[in-house]
């Protein structure tokens, strides 16, 4: 079982959802990112989604757009993101999924990226603008080196499409809670979580619910039905609001602890 699969199984054994925390690599600078990742992991993140910044993130709302711009302005590149992973791996086994868009990966080279990512200690890939129809090349390359592939299902996906996406998942399926960009409000997380759980049950695979999850209450609603819950923009906002690096680390740790409390299934 992969490191991601083990983290999900570990959470399930504790009767809670796994907490997946998004951090945009290089926001506000690459030097701080390893510490932010470790702070999130220490505070209760089970899996880290490490954002690879892209100039034109069309699936992201203003919060992650601005984080990506800050990261790019600070000189973040894909090799720099892999260096972050190597540094995290010196002290931590927290599973890391690279989360990004296809163009920087194509530019780096698909085979080269999967090989270098695996060597650096990356566990999985999630590429927002690579739907099932387009993913074969990169997914095959990822699987060959032992990386997990994380596909997406959306509320607009037909049952057939959602099932096809789930079939491509090697550790979990990422279900988008609503039609919209990251950081938007989700009108009804609980019904989205129930729908995601139905897809997961049909495929016999764990599902994570993301988009529009920002508070412990949101996490609680999703955790009732899903194996994992993803929080992104709400964590990025904590980093953006910090005046110093130390404050950013404290804010992220506080936020993740609060979110982690929502993961435990009480009922």
């Amino acid at each position: 079982m992969s490191r991601i699969g083990e983290a999900l199984a570990h959470a399930a054994a504790e009767n809670r959802a796994a907490l997946v925390i998004y951090v945009c690599a290089g926001d506000p600078n690459l030097a701080l990112t390893p510490a932010l990742v470790l702070a999130a992991a220490d505070a209760g993140a089970d899996v880290i989604e490490l954002g690879v910044p892209f100039s034109d993130p069309t699936a992201d709302g203003p919060t992650i757009q601005r984080a990506s711009q800050r990261a790019l302005a600070a000189g973040t590149t894909l090799p720099g993101v892999l260096e972050v992973v190597r540094r995290v791996r010196q002290t931590s086994e927290v599973p890391i999924v690279l989360f990004g868009y296809i163009n920087p990966i194509l530019s780096y080279g698909e085979q080269r990226l999967t090989r270098d990512a695996h060597a650096a200690g990356v566990d999985g890939l999630l590429v927002v603008d690579l739907p099932p129809e387009e993913c074969a090349g990169l997914r095959d390359a990822a699987l060959q080196v032992g990386l997990d592939w994380v596909p997406l299902a959306a509320p607009t996906s037909t049952e057939a499409r959602a099932d096809a996406a789930a079939a491509l998942a090697t550790s979990f399926l990422y279900c988008v809670s609503m039609t919209g960009v990251t950081g938007s409000d989700a009108p009804d997380l609980e019904s989205a979580a129930r729908e995601a759980a139905r897809v997961g049950a049909r495929a016999g695979k764990p599902v994570a619910l993301g988009f529009g999850v920002s508070t412990a209450d949101d996490v609680r609603a999703a955790a009732k039905h899903c194996d994992a819950v993803v929080v992104g923009s709400a964590v990025v906002r904590e980093i953006a609001a910090a005046a110093t690096d130390d404050e950013a680390l404290l804010r992220v740790a506080d936020k993740v602890r609060a979110l982690a409390a929502g993961c435990t299934r009480t009922a």
Partner: peptide, 20 residues
Amino acid sequence: AFAGRYGDFGGRYVAETLMP
């Protein structure tokens, strides 16, 4: 998977939400 290709170019590189 083979629709919308012009040689090596074209395709559908968008978020799943838009695919349907």
